Amino acid sequence: MRNILRVLKPFDVVVIALLIAISFIPLTVFAMSKTAQTGGEIVAVISQDGEVIREITLTGHEGNEQFIIDGKGHQYNLMEVDDERIRIKEDNSPDQIGVKMGWKDRPGETIVCLPHKLLVEIEARGNTSDEDEQIISY
């Protein structure tokens, strides 16, 4: 550690701090663009192996709903929608990453279960702050 401190000059520390601060700009811009979307509805799009299975409107959803998405063989995912949020409550994948991702309710968030090829995307639809601006994703 002392060797590193001897090599670093005061200006190096300023440059490193500036680079770290700049690295957060994309996160800030993305968060601001997502919060600018108002007036529309939030929809959870559930797809498996690239095919849309179900769409659930989260805006205004009340109560608790659970349903199972079957995969190939003995694969399953138990989905839970509680008011205006969604999660994978239970599945039989070995790593349980989809379950550990927890509740999602904001546009742009995703839940992924790779062994079952399951993807849950939270999307904003309808009115946004800027009708002409669209985000294209592949």
Score class of each variant (00 low, 15 high):
M1A: 15
D95V: 12
D82T: 13
E62G: 07
N3R: 14
S23Q: 08
G40R: 05
T38K: 15
G50W: 00
S137N: 15
S23M: 12
F11D: 08
G60P: 02
R87N: 09
S137R: 15
E131P: 13
N77E: 04
I16D: 00
Y76W: 03
V29N: 04
N3I: 11
V81C: 02
M32H: 12
R2K: 14
L118V: 09
D95P: 07
P26T: 05
R87D: 02
L19C: 11
K9V: 04
N77Y: 07
D12G: 03
G102C: 02
L18F: 13
G71E: 00
I4T: 15
L27Y: 12
E123S: 12
F24Q: 06
G40L: 03
P107W: 04
D105M: 15
Q37W: 11
Q134C: 06
M79L: 15
Q75M: 09
E55D: 07
M101C: 01
G98T: 01
K9Y: 06
T35N: 08
L119K: 10
I86A: 05
L119H: 12
T28I: 12
V112A: 01
S137P: 02
I4A: 15
C113V: 09
L18A: 15
E55R: 13
V99S: 04
Q66C: 05
I4D: 12
R85T: 00
V15I: 08
D83I: 02
L114F: 13
E41D: 10
Y76C: 01
D132F: 13
V45K: 14
M101T: 08
G50K: 08
Q66A: 05
I42L: 06
M79S: 05
T35S: 09
I68N: 09
T110A: 14
L78T: 11
W103R: 04
F30T: 04
M1K: 15
K117H: 10
P10Q: 03
R54I: 00
